[in-house]
Amino acid sequence: MATLEIDRVRKAYGTMEVLKEVSISIGSGDFLVLLGPSGCGKSTLLNMIAGLETITGGEIRIDGDTVNDLSPKDRDIAMVFQSYALYPTMTVRQNIEFGMKIRGVPTAERERATRDAAELLQMSHLLDRKPSQLSGGQRQRVAMGRALVRHPKLFLFDEPLSNLDAKLRVDMRTEIKRLHQRLGTTIVYVTHDQIEAMTLATRVAVMKDGIVQHLDEPQAVYDRPANVYVARFVGSPAMNIIPGRLEDGPSGPALVMDQPNGGESRISGVVVSDDARQRYAGQPVLVGIRPEGFSVSAGGPDCVEAMIEVVEPTGPDTLANFTLGGTDVIARLAPLAVRAGQTAKLAVETAKVVLFDPKTELRID
Rank of each mutant, 00 (worst) to 15 (best):
P301N: 09
R8M: 03
D171I: 03
A147E: 09
A113P: 03
D302W: 05
Y222T: 00
Y87I: 02
E309H: 12
L35N: 00
T360A: 13
A108I: 02
A50W: 09
T107L: 12
K208P: 02
L346I: 04
L4E: 08
R279Q: 14
S43A: 08
D116K: 14
T54Y: 11
G145A: 15
P284N: 10
G14N: 11
G315N: 06
V353R: 08
L215M: 02
K352E: 13
E21S: 15
L164Y: 12
G315H: 05
G41P: 05
T91D: 04
F98G: 07
I241M: 02
S132W: 04
V304H: 05
E21L: 02
M307F: 06
G184P: 07
I96F: 03
A226W: 03
L246M: 11
L156M: 08
R8T: 11
T54G: 15
I60A: 02
T91S: 15
P301M: 08
G145E: 09
E109R: 14
A276V: 11
T185L: 07
T343Y: 03
R173A: 13
V338F: 06
K167R: 15
I49L: 12
E217D: 09
N95E: 12
L45W: 09
P358N: 01
I77C: 15
R173F: 11
P237L: 09
G39N: 03
T191D: 05
